[in-house]
Amino acid sequence: MLERAELIRQEYLRHDKKFPHVWCPGCGNGIVMNALLRAIHHLELPKDNVVLASGIGCSGRLPTYVDFNTIHTTHGRALTFATGVKLAKPQLTVITVMGDGDATAIGGNHFIHAARRNLNLTAIIINNNTYGMTGGQYSPTTPYGSKSTTSVYGHVEHAFNIAELAVVAGASFVARGTVYHANHLNTMIQQAITKRGFSVVEVISNCHVQHGRRNKLGNAVQMINSFKENAVLVSKAEKMTAEEMKGKFSIGVLCDVEKPVSTEEYDRVRQAAQTEAIRIAEEKAKNGVKRYEE
């Protein structure tokens, strides 16, 4: 285990000038980064072929630290950039890392459309229920009644369920993991990257500094432990009543379907366009239409 950690440290981290990183001690982002690196390492993807794009927020800094083709884009827009990269060079493995506010508030429209479009992309969404970097304001996944710097009297809105949102928006693969279940998370990310089509991994993570502190959820260890207590495997959750699931959430693969991937479908468009062009050219030649030439 130590050996592999050392290997990953040497092979995948950018050491000169990028560290120390910006994350608070105990932050779940490091666990996600590690799970992602182990997944990529296990899949033996050449570093040159991996593109990692992020938006803005704590999660947005993740690509800075890892040695791939990395793009730290604008807030909420990681998937739009990833779409351009993937369509321009379909042979690359394109992965985005976003936060909950990033992916489902300012980037919510891009997120559901990316799922509907079904390009061969992977989206990892780190859900810590708050905007950590800007100081703990409420996000689309802040639970009803919670306190944040913009809901000091208790939050009056209701939270998105990111993974379920991805399912109904049409993603080919949707999974949920937590930063407690690090090995499981690694597996989920591997499956997502391998999946042909748009794949989503929602990662339940902790922001003890902002969300946890304001809602008396304890320190990093206590918060991460709570994920262990409240996470239920999808297969088990399916058999539980709504009452039994109260305060709990499911982890594992929520959706895994096969559908045409638009990255490849577009090749058909190219062929159709070329066939049609040949037909038109032949017809023109046959009709002998002669245009003025300089």
């Binding site: 998937l79 950039f81 779409t83 321009a88």
Partner: peptide, 10 residues
């Protein structure tokens, strides 16, 4: 966003 992504990809 998409055109910048494509541009970065060359």
């Amino acid at each position: 966003g998409a055109i910048i992504g494509a541009s970065l990809a060359g």
